[in-house]
């Protein structure tokens, strides 16, 4: 009797196990294009870095049933492909899930930073403050962004109040730079070169060019004067034209050299600020996925 019961139990166990396996395989693989399979495949593509195809899979799933988590991955895929406009558009569609909605707002702010639209970035941070509450780190990003465009900065004490310790010293330097950038004056450079050929170039940190311009203009002027004094009018005019060419070219060149110098200074400053922000992920936590 006991042996029969044991036998029957064993049969039943094997039966249910096989039915289970049977169902598992047939449900999973009889249609590779059902939602769960598409989601699994999309996740695989996302983890592989094949974002374009992952987006296709996720969008296909979303066409039949909405899922904020998949929508977040679509937006992240666009961000990772460097298509920040599209990522912002996709992040905006996340509404129902409170947690993902908060993350999506933060990611949109990061995308606006990448685009370089600092006005909208600050607007978004303000909206975030109102809807999600104060955030110390976002206020830092807000204030750093003021350094990157032509916005007016608040009073130094107010501005620095968002920062502490070592960072406060650094941002204080940036603040001073922004208030009084070490730009040079193109008009001043042109006047300097008009008075002493080459001096404007030296002022624009192009010492070699300055000395060359001084020597060339000086020598051709000397030759022109010498020729006119010796009644060699034709060659006098030739050398005078060359001297005039160098002289006027040097005045114009000095002004543009200072403009280039200023552009370089601004470019380096912006790069320095961006590098600092990028090293800290723009003070916004990076969403992590299982495959990251």
């Amino acid at each position: 009797m006991i042996a029969n019961v044991l036998k029957l139990t064993t049969y039943l166990f094997i039966l249910f196990t096989l039915i289970g396996i049977n169902n598992l395989f047939s449900q999973e693989l009889d249609n590779l294009f059902n939602s769960s399979n598409r989601t699994a495949f999309g996740n695989y593509l996302f983890c592989e870095g094949d974002y374009l195809r992952a987006i296709d899979e996720f969008k296909s799933v979303l066409s039949s049933e909405w899922n904020d988590s998949l929508q977040f991955k679509i937006a992240t895929s666009y961000y990772r492909m460097g298509q920040f406009d599209k990522s912002i558009y996709e992040f905006q569609k996340i509404e129902a899930d409170i947690y993902l909605n908060k993350l999506a707002k933060l990611e949109s702010i990061r995308s606006f930073y990448q685009i370089g639209d600092y006005n909208i970035l600050r607007d978004q941070i303000n909206v975030y403050f109102i809807t999600m509450g104060e955030s110390q780190k976002l206020s830092k990003l807000y204030n750093y962004s003021l350094l990157l465009d032509s916005s007016l900065l608040p009073e130094k004490s107010v501005y620095l109040s968002h920062f502490n310790g070592e960072e406060r010293n650094r941002i204080s330097e940036y603040y001073d730079w922004k208030i009084k950038p070490p730009y040079k004056n193109p008009t001043k450079a042109a006047i300097m070169s008009a008075l002493v050929p080459g001096l404007g170039k030296i002022y624009a940190n192009e010492v070699g060019d300055g000395i060359t311009a001084f020597l060339l203009t000086g020598l051709f002027t000397y030759l022109a004067v010498d020729k006119f004094q010796n009644n060699h009018t034709a060659s006098g005019w030739l050398y005078a034209s060359i001297a005039a060419f160098f002289y006027s070219g040097n005045i114009y060149g000095s002004a543009t050299a200072v403009q280039n110098y200023n552009a370089g200074i601004k470019f380096n400053f912006n790069n320095k600020v961006k590098f600092y922000l990028n090293e800290r992920d723009q003070f916004i936590p990076i969403p992590k996925y299982l495959c990251d």
Partner: peptide
């Protein structure tokens, strides 16, 4: 059941 299992593998 072995038969069914094989059928599923075949599918």
């Amino acid at each position: 059941n072995i038969f069914l299992f094989n059928i599923s593998i075949f599918i």
